[in-house]
C-alpha cells in the first residue's frame, strides 16, 4: 500500500529526514516511535502533502502511484488520512460542516452521490457514540475551544467518518487521560481491516498496550534506526531511546 524509499526531507535548508525506507502492506499496523524532534511529524505531514517541507530525494508510492504527484486534497480523496498531532482550530466553520464537506469531496471523487442529510447525520451520530464525543461539539467551530482530549477524539471521529485506506495518526495518544486513551484506542482498533493500513506515530508504549502493531520502527536522527515486532516497543519502554540513538549515531559515523 505504501512504499517509502530513501526519503530525504528538509525544511529551511535543514535536513530532517535523511533516508527513510518503509514498506506498509494493507491490513498492517505499523508503529513509528522515536524521541522528540526525531522527525516523526515531519514524515506524517510530508505523506499528507504539507508543502512547507522540501523533498530533496527519494520516492513514495501509494497504491502503486507516485504520491508526490498528488495534491493534499487528492491524497485525502484517494484515502489518506492524517490525524494531526496538533489539530487546527477553524473559527467560524462548524465541525459538522467540515465532516460533510470532507465526506462529500471524497464521495464525489469516487463517483458516488452526496449522502442526504438524514443518512449523513445517522452516520455521524453512530461514530460519535463510538468515540464517546458530545454531540454539541458537532455544532461548534472546528476544534475551537476544544480540550486537548476533545481535539484528539475529533480527529478520530473524522477518520471514522471518512474510512481511509491509509490512516496516519500522529501522537493521537499524547496528552490523554486513561479514559480518553481507551476511547481513542478503541476507535483505532475498530478501524483495523484487511484492506486498510495504519501508521501509529507515538512517543510512548502505552497506546500499544491496546493496539498490537505488526511492526515497530524507531526513528532517530532522521532515519529508521531500528525495526522489530511489538517486543521492540516494550524494550524501548524499559530502556528509553538513548541506546537506539547512540547506535544510529554510530551507524551514521561509520557510513
Amino acid at each position: 500500500m505504501l512504499e517509502i524509499t530513501n526519503l530525504h526531507v528538509s525544511v529551511d535548508g535543514k535536513e530532517i529526514l535523511r533516508g527513510i525506507d518503509l514498506v506498509v502492506q494493507a491490513g498492517e499496523v505499523h508503529a513509528v516511535m522515536g524521541p522528540n524532534g526525531s522527525g516523526k511529524s515531519t514524515l506524517a505531514q510530508v505523506l499528507a502533502g504539507r508543502d512547507s517541507y522540501t523533498v530533496s530525494a527519494g520516492s513514495v508510492r501509494y497504491d502503486g502511484r507516485d504520491l508526490f504527484a498528488l495534491s493534499p486534497e487528492e491524497r485525502a480523496r484517494e484515502g489518506i488520512f492524517l490525524a494531526f498531532q496538533y489539530p487546527v482550530e477553524i473559527p467560524g466553520v462548524a465541525n459538522i460542516y467540515l465532516l460533510k464537506a470532507a465526506l462529500n469531496a471524497q464521495r464525489q471523487h469516487r463517483g458516488l452521490p452526496e449522502l442526504d442529510a438524514v443518512d449523513f447525520l445517522a452516520l455521524v451520530r453512530d461514530q460519535l457514540k463510538r468515540v464517546g464525543m458530545d454531540e454539541a461539539l458537532l455544532y461548534r467551530p472546528v476544534n475551537q475551544g476544544f480540550s486537548g482530549g476533545e481535539k484528539k477524539r475529533n480527529e478520530i471521529l473524522q477518520m471514522a467518518v471518512l474510512q481511509p485506506k491509509l490512516a496516519i495518526l500522529d501522537e493521537t495518544d499524547s496528552g490523554l487521560d486513561i479514559d480518553a486513551l481507551k476511547a481513542v484506542a478503541d476507535g483505532i482498533e475498530a478501524m483495523r481491516r484487511p484492506d486498510r493500513a495504519i501508521i501509529l506515530v507515538t512517543h510512548y508504549q502505552r497506546l500499544l498496550d491496546y493496539i498490537v502493531p505488526n511492526q515497530v520502527h524507531v526513528l532517530a536522527q532522521g532515519r529508521i534506526a531500528r525495526s522489530g515486532g511489538p517486543e521492540l516497543a516494550r524494550e524501548l519502554e524499559r530502556r528509553g531511546y538513548a541506546w537506539v540513538e547512540a547506535a544510529a549515531a554510530g551507524t551514521g559515523a561509520a557510513a
Binding site: 499528507a48 494531526f84 487546527v88 464537506a101
Partner: peptide, 11 residues
C-alpha cells in the same frame, strides 16, 4: 488552516 482543510479533501 488551509492545509488542514485540504488534508480533509477540500480543494
Amino acid at each position: 488552516q488551509i492545509f488542514y482543510l485540504r488534508s480533509r479533501g477540500l480543494a
